[in-house]
């Protein structure tokens, strides 16, 4: 694609996710990296030495003052900064893709959704990259088309071997992250459940808490989706052995059959087994075992929404708020 017609993307926050977004913005034909921002100047230097070819700034203001054309921002800072930075970018006329969760608190998430509604001409998106896996999209489509009849119950889990001792860093603090395994990792699974069953859910009960760190390392909840939707259990645990990479699984019982979904396989109780290879077609994959296809498709979806008039991103900030409401309800049950 000719550079003049590519979208100019700036990435804000150059930690682990920021680096990934810089790589994706460089790999996708519709986009180019035009600027990078982080409070820590050393990270700007590090990113340049990783190959990124874009000017560095230590604040969003400095970037906006210097870079002539910026179309969109990707926000890859910790969630306690999302609201201020997100609102600043929208006010400056940028489209914004924010990493998940929308914010560390429900109040901030609500304010962000309101800001997005006020700037309705800007595209907002949230980084639920698992929702861009073609296999999960196919599962949701089949479920809706009655593959197993009416869904009656489900069992959903996500497991990861990550936390086995007290941990340092903002990710493991209630103040800055908003919680532990649920808001940092398990939120993807909450999002997948909303893809399957709809954006509202009633949380009946929740149980869990810290094991090693100061935030919850495991949580189990019982949920009910309204309007005749299914009920089921949700569990997230990042302190369990045997899962070097995140393992997600949803089993659904319908009145005409059962289905199970993982990141690799979609199975039906009649013996049908579909592997992700039938659907994965991204032109560039950064890491298939860590959400590779999702990162690319997510950015492509965001770019297409900007380029094509009248389209929204597949998961915008309003959607991000709906998911955050469920997460918040789980926390309230856990605390209550």
């Amino acid at each position: 694609m000719n550079p003049a017609s590519q979208l100019n993307i700036c990435v804000i926050g150059l930690g682990k996710m920021g680096v990934m977004h810089c790589a994706m913005s460089s790999a996708l034909p519709q986009t180019q990296l035009c600027a990078v921002v982080d409070r820590d100047a050393k990270l700007g230097k590090q990113l340049r030495s990783m190959g990124a070819d874009a000017p560095y700034f230590n604040s969003v203001e400095a970037m906006l003052n210097s870079v002539k054309r910026v179309d969109a921002a990707i926000l890859a800072t910790p969630q306690f900064t999302h609201r201020a930075l997100g609102e600043q970018c929208l006010a400056a006329g940028l489209h914004v893709l924010t990493e998940k969760p929308l914010a560390h608190t429900l109040a901030d998430a609500e304010a962000m959704a309101a800001a997005a509604a006020k700037h309705a001409d800007r595209i907002t998106a949230i980084g639920f990259m698992k929702g861009h896996y073609p296999l999960w999209i196919e599962a949701a489509r089949r479920l809706k088309d009655g593959w197993i009849g009416e869904p009656e119950s489900f069992k959903a889990s996500v497991n990861l071997s990550q936390v086995f001792k007290p941990m340092k860093g903002w990710t493991f603090t209630k103040d800055q992250a908003g919680g532990g395994v649920l808001i940092n990792t398990g939120i993807h699974l909450v999002h997948l459940l909303t893809m399957l069953f709809g954006p509202d859910a009633h949380v009946i009960s929740a149980e869990g808490g810290p094991v090693h760190s100061a935030v919850e390392d495991r949580i189990t909840a019982i949920m009910q989706f309204p309007n005749g939707g299914p009920h089921g259990t949700y569990s997230a645990n990042w302190s369990v052995e045997g899962f070097p990479t995140e393992a997600t699984r949803v089993d659904i019982e319908g009145d005409a059959g059962r289905m199970s979904i993982t990141d690799d396989w979609l199975r039906h109780s009649d013996g049908t087994a579909l592997h992700r290879s039938e659907f994965d077609r991204a032109a560039f994959n950064a890491s298939p075992d860590y959400g590779g296809e999702g990162w690319y498709n997510q950015l492509e979806d965001f770019a297409q929404a900007i380029i094509q008039d009248g389209r929204t991103a597949r998961y915008d900030w309003q959607y991000g708020l709906a998911v955050q409401r469920i997460v918040d309800a789980m926390y309230r049950k856990l605390e209550g």
Binding site: M24, S26, A27, M50, G51, A286, S287
Partner: peptide, 8 residues
Amino acid sequence: DLLLALNN
């Protein structure tokens, strides 16, 4: 693949 995307 990261270094490839970043042209390093």
